[in-house]
Each structure stands twice: as structure tokens, then as C-alpha cells.
Design a protein around this nucleic acid. Structure first.
Lengths: 189, 189
DNA sequence: TCATTGACCGTAAAACGTTTATGGTCACTA
DNA sequence: TAGTGACCATAAACGTTTTACGGTCAATGA
């Protein structure tokens, strides 16, 4: 068995179960069946190990998001599908859920940092899709950075924030309809 | 001098300067030049006193927002002016700034509650403006609750959140342009 | 008579000293 | 020489004491 891989598996399990702060290097070493020192031959500290795990997750998110793409469908349909998929991942994936909880409850700085960087990556991802839409002639030229930001924040607000102040959750149809009428319609050529 | 008024002035000063948690009833009594017991003849507890002060502030916000309205201007121009005014107030008014800081640093539950209710009021205010725009035939019929929510959250994201992850702040023109192209354009008849 | 007061009360939070746990190292080992 | 776990310094958790606070109410005096 690959020691590095064992460590990554153990770390993923522990971070997912206990979060960043409550995960100890002794814990990870025990789960991975290695001495604590061994971890430090692969990762220079806890922070780096954590970031390696998060990078894995971000890759998985990217994969899942791309998989939800429907070949031949419009920009709007695919952007909607991908963003909803990402937000579903956010509320479903054990590690992501745990990190959001930790950010809210403990305010662990490392966790805040990592969550912010994930958001940035998603927005950059959306931006690239918009640029692609423009260069394919499907979308009007626009400030893709701003539009990507607005689009992502809108989804976040409607999917995540809305249910915090209203008891019912918005249905996917309502969200799709609202954004189709407003932001999306203005992007199309 | 009106004792009730003295107390309100003292409370406003103290809450603005120190926030909710760090304001003590002894403090307020001293500033107001009244015995502590006197406060309790007008307000049944600290929470009620605080809410009275916040209600004052919300009224001031409403006034300031209405004042920024340009008679005869379009829905878009006025909605933009009012929302920018409200967000400026949010970042300028001593008490509001202090409460946002306290919510972030201390997470005082009462403060979170009050800030949430202010947001709700603003959104309801926007909703009414939208409904009015519809009944005047200036706007297409739409789900005003959802649109108001989206609009407010968009402004919040562009004005407040953007500068947290990007070093430069968005100019008012950029914001006006972006939202004019996207959300506003879709609302007009 | 009754509005006003501040000493007083119970409680919750701050302060503090002590103990425990944790990230990281490195001499030792197999 | 890759791998280990006892070890170290430090920081976080814990338990206890002290302080501070919101709220009350008997006393006061206008």
C-alpha cells in the first residue's frame, strides 16, 4: 500500500468527520496506520495536508459539474445545471458541509481562507464559461468577471440564503424562471 | 427636559459608540443623568430600549432613502439611487456600522436578529416600489418578492462583498451599468 | 402620592492559574 | 535510510474565583 495515499485517505476521512481544527495529526497517523513522523515526510505541516485534501475536493466538484453538462444544450440550460449541481455538492458533500459548519461555528481562519478560495475558483470557472459563450457567439460581449460574480452570488442568495429567512425553500423551477427572465435573458445575443 | 427623550439620546449615543453588548444600563443612566430605575419606567428591559433606538434608525433610513428619490425619474434611476443611498447609510451611520462590526466579531444574537429584520424591511420596501412600478405600468408584472430579494442581494454583493475579495471597489457607474444591462432591463415593459 | 432613585440581588460572564492536548521535531531503530 | 513515537514548547481547554451586569424595590422627597 502507498503510504502517501493512505495518509490522504485518512486525512480526508478525519477532516470530513471532525473538521480542520478537531482533526489531530495523531488521529490521522493512527487511521493511516503510519507513524506521525511519516506524515511530515510527505506534507510539511497540517495546513498543507488540509489544502491537498481540499484540492482533491475541488477537482471532484469540477468533474461533477462538467458531468452535469448536457451536450448541445444552450448556455442558459447548462449554466443553470452546473451551478445547481455545484450548490447541491456544497450542501451534500461531507467535507464541504463540515467546513461550512466549522466556518460558522468556530471561525477557524484556515477554513475561512479555504472556503473563500473555493468560491473564487467557482466564479473563475463560471467566468470562463461565459467567455466561451461569447466567443461561440451565443452570448453578447460583457464584463465576464462581473457577470460571473453576479450570477454566482445570485444563485447563492436564492438557493442558500433565501431559506434562512423564509420557511419554504425556492423550487428549482422558480429559480430557473426568475434568472431566465432577468440575468440570462440579458446575456443572450 | 423630557426624561424619556434624554434616555433615548443617551442610549443612541452609547449603542453607537460601544455596541449592544458593551452598553450597560448604568452607563446609559449616567449619560442620561437619570437613576437606573427610571429607564425601567419607560422601557421594560435593555432589549426593548435597543429596539426603540433601532426603530428610530430605520425610520431615518427610510427618510433618507425617500429623499434621494428624483421626481419624474424612471424606476431604474430611482431604485438605483435609493438602494445606493441605503448601502451608503449602512457603511456610514455610526450605529449601523457598529452593529455590523459587533455581529461579525461578537455574534451577539440580539444584534444578528435586529440586522436581519432591517434587511427584511429594506427588501419589503423594495418590493413595494416594484409593485408600484407595476401598477403604474412602468414595469412588467413579476414576482415582486423574488425580484426585490434578488435586486437587494445583488446590490449587497456588488457594493459590499466585491471589495472583500478584490482590492479595488466597484465604481457606481460599473454597478449601475451591469444591473441596468441585466436585472433592470428585464423588468421594464 | 407617586415619580425617581441607587443599594442590592442572583446570575452570567470575565479573569486567572493550572492542566491537558497538539503540532511539529529528531534521535533512534529495524 | 525510511519510518517511528517519545519528547518538547506552546496553545488551548478546564475549573475556580472574582467581577460586572440586568433588573428589582424599599426608601426618599418633591
Amino acid at each position: 500500500m502507498d503510504r502517501r495515499q493512505e495518509i490522504l485517505l485518512a486525512a480526508e476521512k478525519s477532516f470530513s468527520l471532525f473538521g480542520y481544527k478537531a482533526t489531530t495529526m495523531d488521529q490521522v497517523a493512527k487511521i493511516a496506520n503510519v507513524g506521525k513522523g511519516t506524515i511530515y515526510t510527505f506534507f510539511s505541516n497540517k495546513e498543507e495536508l488540509f489544502q491537498a485534501i481540499v484540492r482533491q475536493m475541488v477537482e471532484e466538484m469540477r468533474r461533477v459539474s462538467e458531468e452535469s453538462t448536457i451536450a448541445g444544450a444552450s448556455f442558459e440550460v447548462n449554466a443553470h445545471a452546473r451551478l445547481m449541481q455545484l450548490l447541491k455538492f456544497r450542501e451534500t458533500h461531507q467535507l464541504y458541509v463540515k467546513l461550512i459548519e466549522e466556518e460558522k461555528e468556530l471561525r477557524t481562519p484556515m477554513v475561512s481562507e479555504v472556503l473563500a478560495s473555493i468560491e473564487e475558483e467557482i466564479i473563475e470557472f463560471v467566468r470562463q464559461k461565459i467567455e466561451r459563450g461569447i466567443s461561440k457567439g451565443e452570448l453578447k460581449p460583457c464584463n465576464s468577471e462581473l457577470v460571473a460574480y453576479l450570477l454566482f452570488k445570485s444563485y447563492l442568495a436564492l438557493v442558500v440564503d433565501w431559506s434562512k429567512t423564509h420557511d419554504r425553500q425556492l423550487s428549482e423551477e422558480e429559480i430557473a424562471q426568475l434568472l431566465s427572465d432577468t440575468i440570462f435573458s440579458s446575456l443572450l445575443v
